[in-house]
């Protein structure tokens, strides 16, 4: 058993460079996968690529050869439509071969259009219909406490997902249960399928909402790898309440013509656009 466990490594420039490289690959993979598939959600995959890089290549503890290891940290992608980024991270972490990535969304592929825990090694929960991940995370955190295990539970949500009532049911429950082994992360890219979050149903003041629900709230730049890593570390010291990271991000981050464009929520790049995008991303 070889457990990936690098949480305690200092945030040196070389570690941050490595995380940056992984994030770059996650972005490249996400764009290639969705263009190959002819459908999918590239914009929100790019906005959370840096968050996933810090989680999977620095913060989380797991064993890719034994995805069911009971002591592992749990990560739930509640914004399931960003699964190209998750699949890329899981393949880089060694949960399954890189070749699987190009089968995304094809009949018979282990990589479903939205995450499915019974199809894909390393996927902890079946998501896609928004709003459900935080509740599942609460259950995992309760189980960890009942079994006196040290693992921690991370749930990445979209900001459009904050519209869902279930998120707030779970938020209220988590703080009532004092689930300090649970961390929520909101990919605050300010865009949902139909437009800007503040124009559809305004979410602000979002930090105050989470605070009012009894959570420890940390606001970070979701593209600043050091800030994200430090916030995740810091959450471990917060006792008696769950922590949520409100990560300010840019939808389509890393590709100039995709950034802040509503269109790329659910539209893959054309072949020509993909070439340009990969050129910009480099690597």
């Amino acid at each position: 058993m070889v457990v990936f466990d690098r949480k305690s490594e200092p945030h040196t420039p070389s570690l941050l460079r490595e995380l940056e490289e992984k994030a770059r690959t996650i972005r490249r993979d996400s764009l290639i996968m969705t263009t190959e598939a002819g459908s999918g959600h590239p914009g929100g995959s790019l906005s959370c690529a840096d968050l996933l890089s810090v989680l999977y290549f620095h913060h989380l503890r797991y064993d890719p050869a034994n995805p069911a290891w009971e002591g592992r940290d749990r990560f739930i992608l509640s914004k399931g439509h960003a699964c190209p980024a998750l699949y890329s991270a899981l393949s880089l972490a060694g949960f399954f071969p890189r070749e699987w990535l190009r089968t995304l969304r094809r009949l018979g592929s282990p990589l479903q259009g939205h995450p499915d825990s019974s199809s894909t090694p390393g996927v902890e929960a079946s998501t896609g219909s928004l709003g459900q991940g935080l509740s599942i995370g609460c259950g995992m955190a309760l189980a960890g406490r009942l079994d006196r295990r040290e693992y921690r539970v991370y749930v990445l949500m979209g900001d459009g997902e904050m519209d869902e009532g279930q998120v707030w049911e779970a938020a209220m429950f988590a703080s009532h249960q004092r689930l300090d082994n649970l961390v929520g992360i909101v990919d605050r890219n300010r865009i949902q399928l139909d437009g800007f979050t503040e124009e559809i149903v305004g979410l602000e003041p979002l930090a105050e909402k989470w605070r009012a629900f009894g959570w420890n709230v940390v606001e970070v730049d979701g593209h600043d790898l050091r800030q994200v890593a430090e916030a995740l570390d810091g959450a471990e010291g917060v006792k008696g309440k769950p922590t949520v990271l409100l990560a300010r991000t840019v939808k389509g981050k890393g590709v100039s013509f995709m950034e802040n464009q509503v269109k790329y929520h659910g539209t893959p790049l054309t072949r020509e656009e993909l070439e340009r995008a990969l050129g910009e991303l480099g690597g």
Partner: peptide
Amino acid sequence: GVAEANLMGVAAGLASCG
């Protein structure tokens, strides 16, 4: 509490941990 969506989700998380 009176929150059936969360009810099912929390159960799912508990079940996934055995």
